[in-house]
Design a protein around this nucleic acid. Sequence first.
RNA 1: GCUCAAGUGGUGGAAUUGGUAGACACGUUGGAUUCAAAAUCCAAUGUCGCGAGACGUGUGGGUUCGAUUCCCACCUUGAGUACCA
Length: 941
Amino acid sequence: MYYNFNEIEKKWQDYWAKNQTFKAKNNSDLPKYYVLDMFPYPSGAGLHVGHPLGYIASDIFARYKRHKGFNVLHPQGYDSFGLPAEQYAIQTGQHPALTTEENINTYRRQLDRIGFSFDWSREVRTSDPSYYKWTQWIFIQLFESWYNNDTNKAESIETLVAVFSSEGNTNVNAVCDDHMTSFSASDWNGFSDKEKQEVLLKYRLTYLAETEVNWCPALGTVLANDEIINGLSERGGHPVIRKKMTQWSMRISAYAERLLQGLDQIDWTDSLKESQRNWIGKSVGASVSFKVITNGAKQSQSIEVFTTRPDTIFGVSFMVLAPEHDLVRQITTPEQKEEVENYITATAKRSERDRMSDVKTITGAFTGAYAEHPFTKKPIPIWIGDYVLAGYGTGAVMSVPCGDQRDYDFAKHFNIPIPNIFEGVDISEEAYSSKDNVVITNSDFLNGLNFKEATKKAISELEKLGQGEGKINYRLRDAVFSRQRYWGEPFPVYYVNGMPQMIDKKYLPIILPEVEKYLPTETGEPPLGRADVWAWDTKNGEVVKNENIDHVTVFPLELNTMPGWAGSSWYFFRYMDAHNDEVFASEDALNYWKDVDLYIGGSEHATGHLLYSRFWVKFLKDRGFVNTEEPFKKLINQGMILGMSALVYRIEGTQTFVSKNLVGDHKVQEIHVDVSFINASDEMDIEAFKNWRPDFESAEFILEDGKYIVGREVDKMSKSKFNVVNPDAICEQYGADSLRLYEMFLGPLEQAKPWNTAGITGVHGFLKKLWKLYLGDQGLNITDTEPSSENLKTLHKTIKKVEEDIEHFSFNTSVSTFMIAVNEFTAQKCTSKAVLEPFLILLSPYAPHIAEELWHQLGNTDSIASASFPEFDASYLVENTKNYPISFNGKMKFTLELPMDLSSDAIEKAVMAHEKTIANLGGRTPKKVIIVPGKIVNIVG
RNA sequence: GCUCAAGUGGUGGAAUUGGUAGACACGUUGGAUUCAAAAUCCAAUGUCGCGAGACGUGUGGGUUCGAUUCCCACCUUGAGUACCA
């Protein structure tokens, strides 16, 4: 019987599907374990071998946990709203739902071939109305909530309304829009409906506000900060500009501190936690307010700044506002007006990109106005400069040139004085920005204090004056939630007098309407502006579901759709109870599964999906909908699998291709060739190359040793580099088990590594060897013979190693361990069922098909998935040893443990070496001694 | 610039708490089998040296009986982030 992997794999994949082997139960006496993959966006290109890497790792872990007696939830689904399907629709007119459906089918077929133990009965798709019904529902919950700083959690908006109507907003400690004016209870009760709604909107956790957004003209939509890379859109690489628009925003800033603190509770890599910490960007300092003076007269305005160095307040010699700052035009003196206006126009013209690439140039303009120093009462000139960003802090800084390099450079450039307030520090060349080892001087009441003391003192003095207070600032901005796209979740929102209203929950889902074209309307509205038939209507001032023909007649609807991260921020809860139509997941299901124990996915989601999910989960927890504060207890980032491109060298102007090592001084063009033409020793199949493209048919070659050797280069897998490897082809040629083993064997899970199909023969050969160990030409080789101690030693060594590897996610070394074991079993001529049966269980998470087949060949009738992981017994690993007493100086005595089978020559050598070593110990006593023939090693206690 | 991660044969990588460095695999070389090829099997394979042996984990120091592992400095690469006040 030969190893017919195609037949075997098909057989067991069908068996698992038919018997629902991996269906998870929502109640069980077993402990639960939830293993989750980041669900894929089903792109048109299908899967390449890089995609399943994380899925294979999570599948190994899920299968292992089942063997270990856990009730395992291991689901899969699709993040199926997204831009590519929409852009394809714009080009071809094909409905994104159709494209998406086709792509999902391809993905599913490809995934099924690899033999994953997913519970497909719980599949979710974010673009499915029965799913996004609940995304819309969560949006409504956010709208109906506010963040109470006193209780430090989100509460129903009803509690806020109650406080407003009984005592106004003066005692409310909420996260809200800046510059909230205070009002009393009678003010509130006197407000019109619209005024009340306007006020409440400033408190809601999702709110409508005029915000400066990243607008991508080419895509016709806004982008979140994490969707922009170096000033270009992540998708498509189009330029992005700043623009003011009315948009839905999520008040994630309310959760900044909890998102930061929560990181300590979870088992993620340090680098990932660090990314999130940087993104949240907590700075501790003070806010200080400076009164404005123009032409020697105090003005009503004051400038708020945030500083992390209130201790340096006496070093302030000027202030700088961002050119976009609201006060700039109000305070600029007539004499300076022209210069300031010119500067503002000049900076507005410079794109974000120019500003970034041109960090060195110092520019600015003097406003003619002054600010009054809170303590010295001296006037401080107010400048504007584009090194101050409107979007961070208050958009204004107090400049302390002796303590900040940018302030220092600005002061030098414009000849502004640089007072030194640091004792014994030389600032003639550069600023002294360290907080350590500083003693403040020339600073009145701060003289002689260090950073910590001076900071505290400065804040308390500012508080006495009412011109400042201690403050914590976060870099984390509220997240813009509107997209001017078609293929996304519609908002459950309509407008009355310009104020947003939630459509009643009983009418959810609001189904995405059909449109003729997927482009913005001629008047610049989002694509949904083209829809005239919606599945719902307005009647008597209420939006209702229209069962017949539905027109939007009375009220305008929200025409934006939600961003990609809306649906992915809570999908892990839906898997717990995927078909519930009453709630997003039942209380029982949520209580049972609680959170994700292991989450595997790419690190590119560090500051997007992983932050937004944590935010939504904390919100849902606050409002009592879920019972966990952190969704993902342990998270592993799988590394990317890169393509190994192959290059041929064409001599310029000819059709002659020269082998890699003969290029020498030839002027050559490098051309990417299909990696499937290349064998394991980088030799190209010349015939295949000639047949590849018509223009290569007449190609000539300069060979080395009769071979054409290609150059190699590691790139991302992409069609244009001809280095994409399709898992289907690997499964066809080597089988899914080989693919699974090889992906793990390539290297550590978390590391980026190039794919090279040539190496797969190693693991494939191993599977054939394994097959032969169990099945010979005459059938089963396995007998009921008693295992030898050698057999047991190999088995238990393997159990220990594989168990440790899985627990530590070092799947790569397990594959080697299996190979060694099979080699040893073969050498031992092991046929004992008592040893070879448990070995299959060890192997089954990695290579489930062959393990299942051999398992049944051994006479088992149940799936191997229900077998228990074998128990490790250390006693089988103990060496046979004999003790040899030796002494040193006649005082200390030691016992040497030596293997029984050591030759007397080796023993003598070992004893002598040991005596010598002991002489060097200087009185320390060895705890344990490891003997190797000819060498000796001590472990010193 | 800052933060994090990592530098080991021709290649991917192993050595999980400081204890035989290079497991396992690819590739290469030689051999067996074959009319031939594929497949399979056996052997060799860090460097220098005929050899005994010496040298070897990015570089330079240090701690230790003993360092790929710990400490200091530096170099290189990758990832993230950035006029963040």
